[in-house]
Write a protein that binds this DNA or RNA. Structure first.
Lengths: 192, 192
DNA sequence: TGAAGGTCTTGATTTATATCAATTATTTTC
DNA sequence: GAAAATAATTGATATAAATCAAGACCTTCA
């Protein structure tokens, strides 16, 4: 399980065996069954988490009880609530597993330790953050400029692996439309 | 002009006089007249830029010629296109001045130099990036969960200083609605 | 100071998407 | 492997917001 994370690291930075061992010793594997929460609204998030297997979603629930999906994390992506982590405030989000999943969990303290001890690790983290910010800005741009259909097509293009894995209703939520609308778009698009 | 940036730095990190001088020596003040471009679509963005006076907007233009505002930067905020900066690809965005403005400009090379020479500066940059990412995620959450009116009210609350400064049509664009819709929302809201 | 060019408002109409509701598929689970 | 639960489709209708259009209200700069 852990070797998925190890391979990810190997792809990004070079580490000595001692460093690899150090990182490994500070992380813990957490398994999640489908629908199990990793984080519930109101909890304080204190970790850095890397998905090694499966898929989790990050979502908020509004007053009407509707869920709005902020993001998905599949294997080789990070997950968590940076806002709660940074501010120490209770999270406004939920994270749960869409499939049976496995996560490498670091307490934020341990994670900071690693960052201090291994500068290239810290640099990696920062460049991930850069990329995440850019992706987030792009998502905003797409959502401002496009119709429901265009948003769906852009999603397909950007995350081709997600469509056959994530329930359609969740993709609809991620795209800011109802499941009915997405369903109609799909049948129309196929017929074109 | 520059002392706005100096004060910003003083609020965030402690620097020796030599370090302050070093930073200052690597930056350049650029003045922008209203409507003047800081970046045009197709250009490659190679800077780090801090607004010391005025206000700029970052926007994309779609095939129909409609502008979609990604963000505003007023004094004490950073501006630029991180995607183009990082990837080296031509920018898909435009940045121009909404008011007569002034910017402290660092070439990205110089900026990296500063980051290397002054670790607390680098840490500051990273924590800004964190905050930007969080803000961006929150904007996505708001845009998924709320009606046009709620989005406007959330905007008012989050950026009270912007409303009397930025043309309403641009705020509408930022919020993903037409100027007519925003105008109606405002008159309705006032009458409540 | 007074055109000229923007910007905001207001009204009438259209349109994309949401909502409500029923039916059919597809998974889960015992 | 049948029953139950969940997800996706399809149709009818409602609604929020867009579009089109005209007039009012400002700036600004010649």
């Amino acid at each position: 399980m852990y070797d998925v994370f190890q391979q990810y690291l190997d792809n990004k930075i070079s580490l000595s065996d001692a460093q690899k061992e150090r990182i490994r010793s500070l992380g813990v594997i957490k398994k999640l069954r489908k629908k199990q929460y990793l984080l519930q609204e109101g909890d304080i998030w204190k970790y850095d988490a890397f998905v090694v297997k499966g898929c989790v979603r990050n979502y908020s629930v509004d007053e009407k009880g509707n869920e709005h999906i902020i993001g998905f994390s599949i294997e080789n992506w990070w997950a968590g609530d940076r806002e709660s982590l940074l501010s120490g405030a209770p999270s406004r989000f939920n994270i749960d597993a869409i499939e049976d999943s496995a996560i490498v969990l670091f307490t934020h303290e341990n994670f900071e330790l690693i960052c201090q001890e291994i500068p290239p690790f810290k640099d990696m983290v920062n460049s991930i953050l850069q990329a995440s910010f850019i992706a987030s800005q792009n998502r905003i741009q797409v959502s401002l400029s496009n119709t429901a259909e265009e948003k769906y097509l852009a999603f397909l293009k950007k995350y081709p692996g997600f469509v056959n894995r994530i329930p359609q209703s969740m993709i609809a939520s991620y795209l800011g439309m109802t499941p009915e609308t997405l369903s109609r778009i799909r049948t129309q698009t196929i017929r074109k």
